[in-house]
Design a protein around this nucleic acid. Structure first.
Lengths: 231, 231
DNA sequence: TGCTGGCAGTTCATCTGATGTTTGCGAAAG
DNA sequence: CTTTCGCAAACATCAGATGAACTGCCAGCA
């Protein structure tokens, strides 16, 4: 086990033991290096790794602190790593997204506040103004797409589910997804399906919301370019 | 943006550009440091971070290589970070696991080979011998529990789903879960539910498999200790 | 009194150079 | 042809020095 791994494990253990709690400040580099019996260089490598994993957060001139450790923060690094995936993995990927978002829609249908429903409505209302005739502002449409799905995820009452969906359907991933979709009139169809989902949510009908969301995402999967290599 | 972040981003970009492909070897530290205009120390911090994220793999005396980048490898670091979660997040966590495993059971029911069904059977057959009378070999029962669920996940045909389930229901997480369950006869009940899931799988009945798995995991959630802080 | 600006100390950021450890490979010996 | 040995390459780790950024405090001013 390398020195750096010892540092990562050591800090992880300190958190698990309750020796370090969210928001706490870590000892200064030199002290911590002494404690863990490594040089400052190795210590920094370990701390940096934990920083990228979202476990700690360091500010120059101040110190290094344990983050809030909530699911959203801890799951977010996944997104960065996920878009390294080969395009061939996209279908498997999107199937999981469908499962997650379908569940989210069902949960949101019973848990969304009136305000949240209105917020979703406001997002969809922005669509007509960017779909004037033949030309569609593609980037802004994607923004709306993301925003709509995000509102739903945000009102599931399950932060873990929300964070996972954010990773699986966040900006970079979504941009890649839309790049492969060149079907004519795809925006109109998507918008129509969003409207159907919204109606189910507004009616507080979880079953309908699940079906509409699943149908929506299955449609997207159908539009996905087929992987070249068939078994 | 710190130097280290530039390194991480730089290497990530080289992979995205196809300049580096899975299995490829990175330039030696000094060269890469020159290319990215950073010192060797900073370079190492960045490479180490990517190493912990599972993107690259470095061997002393040899060099640093891009990993296979498959979902299992890229999602596995999540498990380490996930058991830093507060116990209060356990229910949200387990709900997601239930959704994932339910889907997995449904998929596996139609995709499992006869060999895989036999493998699952063999795992369950190990149970009687460790449940002699009142005393139960707790650790070995957990091992069987993990193995059974893992076989199902492995035959969904979806590596992303498999990797996610592994993270959400892997060894460390599962150990924590079982710590909180002290209901009398929980092992017997669990085993009975596993048997029911197996029958659905053997019958190649996806709907039944889904229901049995969901029921099984909902039962586990009921046994979960209630969080202390009610809103 | 209350606010503002600057100063000093602490802490992280980065670089440099040196030394230890491991690995891979080819040459030499059998 | 096989085995063994030694060298060179590459990563691992350390130590020291310098720079940059933030915090807290305190004096000066209105």
């Amino acid at each position: 086990m390398s020195r750096t791994d010892e540092v990562v494990d050591g800090i992880r253990r300190m958190i698990l033991d309750g020796q370090l709690r969210p928001g706490d400040r870590l000892p200064v580099e030199k002290d911590l290096a002494d404690t863990l019996q490594v040089s400052r260089g190795s210590l920094r490598e370990g701390v940096r790794a934990l920083s990228i994993l979202g476990v700690v957060h360091t500010r120059q001139g101040d110190g290094t602190y344990v983050t809030s450790l909530d699911p959203a923060r801890l799951l977010s690094p996944m997104a960065m790593v996920l878009d390294l995936q080969d395009d061939g993995a996209m279908p498997a990927f999107h199937s999981v997204r469908r499962v997650l978002e379908t569940e989210a829609a069902g949960l949101a249908a019973t848990r969304m506040t009136d305000d949240a429903v209105a917020e979703a409505r406001a997002i969809l209302d922005r669509v007509p103004e960017i779909m004037h005739g033949a030309s569609v502002d593609h980037d802004r449409f994607i923004e709306i797409d993301i925003a709509f799905h995000r509102v739903i995820a945000a009102h599931t009452g399950n932060p873990v589910l929300e964070a996972l969906i954010e990773s699986f359907a966040g900006r970079t991933v979504r941009a890649r997804l839309w790049r492969g979709l060149h079907t004519e009139g795809i925006e109109e169809r998507t918008h129509g399906e969003h409207e159907a989902i919204w109606r189910a949510l507004a009616a507080r009908d979880p079953e309908a919301a699940r079906i509409r969301m699943a149908s929506h995402l299955l449609g997207v999967e159908d539009s996905l370019p087929r992987p070249e290599n068939l078994e």
